[in-house]
């Protein structure tokens, strides 16, 4: 299941790949960090080109299933305002063999960070910045 939403329920994401029983499930959960490069993060804002983001997330699922011997993959990402410690992204992968499940889960988060049109603005005490936008 591919989804962009306000809040992610981890248990639900895991359930969505576990309908049939495959032996191994891997999960990646990304949360807002308290500090970035020594600065205290007050909050984050996630903006998203939603229809294209969903397409790119579907592409990740499709390509992961081609590359690795896995059965199910779910990717959920948040939008809007988030505080330190809150969940940003949850990816779950079910497979008969755990090695493939680990590889596919890592591939999915690595690729998501490169290709999915979602932008994160970090708010500090003395200003805010779009992450990765400028050198």
């Amino acid at each position: 299941m591919i989804k962009i939403e306000e809040n992610i329920n981890v248990e639900q994401v895991i359930q969505s790949v576990s309908k049939s029983q495959y032996g191994g499930t891997t999960v990646f959960i990304g949360t807002v960090r308290v500090h970035t490069k020594g600065q205290r993060v007050l909050k984050l804002h996630f903006e998203c080109y939603e229809p294209m983001a969903l397409r790119e997330m579907e592409k990740i699922e499709r390509q992961a299933k081609e590359k690795f011997d896995i059965q199910e993959m779910s990717i959920h990402h948040v939008v809007g305002e988030k505080l330190p410690g809150e969940k940003v992204v949850v990816i779950a992968v079910a497979a008969f063999h755990r090695k493939a499940a680990f590889e596919a889960c890592e591939y999915a988060i690595d690729t998501l960070k490169e290709t999915v049109p979602i932008w994160k603005k970090e708010f500090f005490e003395n200003g805010s910045v779009w992450v990765a936008a400028h050198p």
Binding site: G30, F46, Y49, M52, V116, P117, I118, W119, V131
Partner: peptide
Amino acid sequence: MNYAEDLLELKAGDEIALIPPVSGG
């Protein structure tokens, strides 16, 4: 909704978007 090369020809009705460095996840 696809990343485009500079050589791609534009047509009327195309949906165009600027994509600065992404930072999801």
